[in-house]
């Protein structure tokens, strides 16, 4: 092992990775063990996988497929279950923003894709999250004439509502909530979208029909039922609160009782 010091003072780390490999949706898949050497503590988790993939490519092996895009915690593409925790144990952090300094030299790290029937594995760690897109299509929008932009402050929004709506709108649709939920429920994601639009004046006309349509689509996709375990909000990189789910239930019950 090289003793090269890095800016954080930790020397390069050696890790044992146990990674889910699955060659397409019809493959059964299996855990495969890899060694990675001389990992800098300053690397992000994805950069560490890049190092592994470069070596696999040079050796003529198939690199490990994983989703990523922005690598700055805002797009919601990345996501894997690291040692049994969605996005790893670091709170309020996407996988791309997780750094190797949180791991011990010599540690074994298990890496698995999100596990949910509505999120089928495409390859290795990549899952198909279009179920989320269909939930959005069912009602996660407002119908407005998209002409020129209205004047700022043309529609007043109370500050508290604006803040709460903005917090809900920070959901990046990564799917960690589903991956972490013991029931495989998509309630936190759906509730974040319903809260975001339902708290703003522009979202009022479709508020009731939106909750109904989105909840029904969520159930139709085969996600499990929410039992308020709170695992979702604990792993959510954006800290979407459980209150959102109560708000979704309130909107939904209002339509159901009509």
């Amino acid at each position: 092992m090289s003793e090269r010091a890095t800016s954080t003072g930790k020397a390069g780390m050696n890790l044992t990775l146990k990674i889910w490999r699955q060659n397409g949706s019809s493959d059964r898949g299996r855990m495969v063990t890899y060694e990675v050497k001389d990992v800098s503590p300053d690397m992000s988790f994805l950069e560490m996988l890049d190092v592994l993939n470069e070596r696999l490519t040079l050796e003529g092996d198939d690199p490990v497929a994983f989703d990523h895009d922005c690598r700055e915690g805002i797009c919601g593409m990345c996501g894997m279950v690291i040692n049994g925790v969605a996005h790893g144990e670091q709170r309020a952090t996407t996988t791309c923003q997780l750094h190797m300094r949180h791991f011990e030299d010599g540690a074994t790290v298990t890496i698995e894709p999100w596990r949910a029937a509505p999120f089928p594995v495409v390859k290795d760690l990549v899952v198909d999250r279009s179920a989320f897109d269909r939930i959005i299509q069912a009602g996660g929008f407002i119908s407005v004439p998209a002409g020129s932009a209205p004047d700022a402050h043309a529609v007043p929004v109370p500050k508290d509502d604006a803040d709460a709506a903005f917090d809900a709108a920070t959901c990046i649709g990564c799917g960690a909530c589903v991956a972490a939920c013991p029931n495989g429920s998509a309630s936190l994601f759906t509730a974040a979208k319903i809260t975001h639009l339902g708290l703003l004046p522009q979202g009022q006309p479709e508020r009731a029909s939106r909750a109904k349509a989105m909840v029904e689509q969520m159930d139709a996709e085969g996600f499990g039922g929410c039992t308020n375990t709170g695992e979702c909000t604990a792993v959510c990189p954006k800290g979407i609160p459980l209150d959102a789910i109560a708000r979704m239930n309130a909107d939904y019950l209002k339509t159901a009782s009509k």
Binding site: V81, V85, A116, N183, G184, G224, G230, E231
Partner: peptide, 24 residues
């Protein structure tokens, strides 16, 4: 029925021991 829906929603279990994060 909630338990059965949950089982159907996660047919493939995690290999690693899932560490509960919410402490409940």
């Amino acid at each position: 029925s909630l338990a059965r829906r949950a089982a159907k929603a996660r047919p493939v279990k995690y290999a690693a021991r899932v560490k509960p994060q919410a402490g409940g």
